[in-house]
């Protein structure tokens, strides 16, 4: 009976204590940084991570859409090609090496499973300006910061987390922030400040739809 009571109180705690979280990522100048990828992973190994999803990366006007995608480990991504020209998608990132034979069309898009956590850079062997990033995460919460550098989660359970902040255009191949973070119970608003200036890659600005080759 006592054990049952204890289990009931734990269940109550895990649902009732989850609270909204607003996390802002700011640079050394205090300004919010848009488009960063934020990943929260509980330090408690017993907690389950986000379940795999089925996602999609299309190819439109010789660009990958979306340009950045975050999925939990084990997710499947399909790659339709809405362009009138064929593409040959590949990745040589250690996280996921693969290539799709030259193809076009959206009827039966090729699908690949992303088993391991890490960053996967996608390219097209025909159109070198095409690039996209898949962040594969084994974590409870993840998302991207908005134009003000803010990322909101409706229901984060309090506890200790490892927070990772990535920027797809960072010149560093590592997270720009990686630290442990205690998230208190009451609707917390947290600010993560970068210790050093973020150096971003400009990437090609060539408008792919104009300068098709």
């Amino acid at each position: 009976m006592r054990l049952l009571f204890h289990a009931a109180s734990l269940l109550f705690a895990s649902t009732a204590l989850a609270a909204p979280l607003e996390l802002r990522v700011v640079g050394v100048d205090g300004k919010g940084i848009a488009g960063t990828v934020v990943v929260l992973r509980s330090t408690d190994p017993a907690r389950s991570i986000a379940r795999p999803v089925e996602a999609q990366i299309d190819q439109v006007d010789r660009q990958f859409v979306p340009h950045v995608l975050i999925v939990p480990t084990g997710s499947k991504i399909s790659f339709p090609n809405s362009d009138s020209v064929s593409h040959q998608v590949y990745s040589f990132s250690p996280t996921k090496r693969f290539d799709l034979p030259l193809y076009r069309g959206t009827q039966h898009p090729p699908v690949r499973e992303f088993e391991r956590a890490g960053v996967v850079t996608l390219g097209c062997n025909i159109h070198d300006n095409m690039r996209a990033y898949v962040f594969v995460v084994d974590a409870q919460y993840f998302g991207r910061t908005d134009a003000n550098g803010a990322w909101k989660v409706p229901d984060v359970q309090p506890g200790t987390y490892t927070v990772q902040v990535w920027h797809p255009k960072s010149r560093e191949a590592r997270p720009v922030i990686e630290q442990q973070l205690r998230i208190p119970a009451a609707e917390p608003q947290l600010v993560l400040r970068l210790a050093t200036e973020l150096r971003l890659r400009a990437e090609s600005q060539v408008p792919a739809n104009w300068d098709a080759y």
């Binding site: 040959q88 590949y90 040589f92 290539d99 390219g123 062997n125 025909i126």
Partner: peptide, 8 residues
């Protein structure tokens, strides 16, 4: 002949 890259 343009093989798909498996490295940089």
């Amino acid at each position: 002949w343009r093989p798909v890259p498996t490295s940089p």
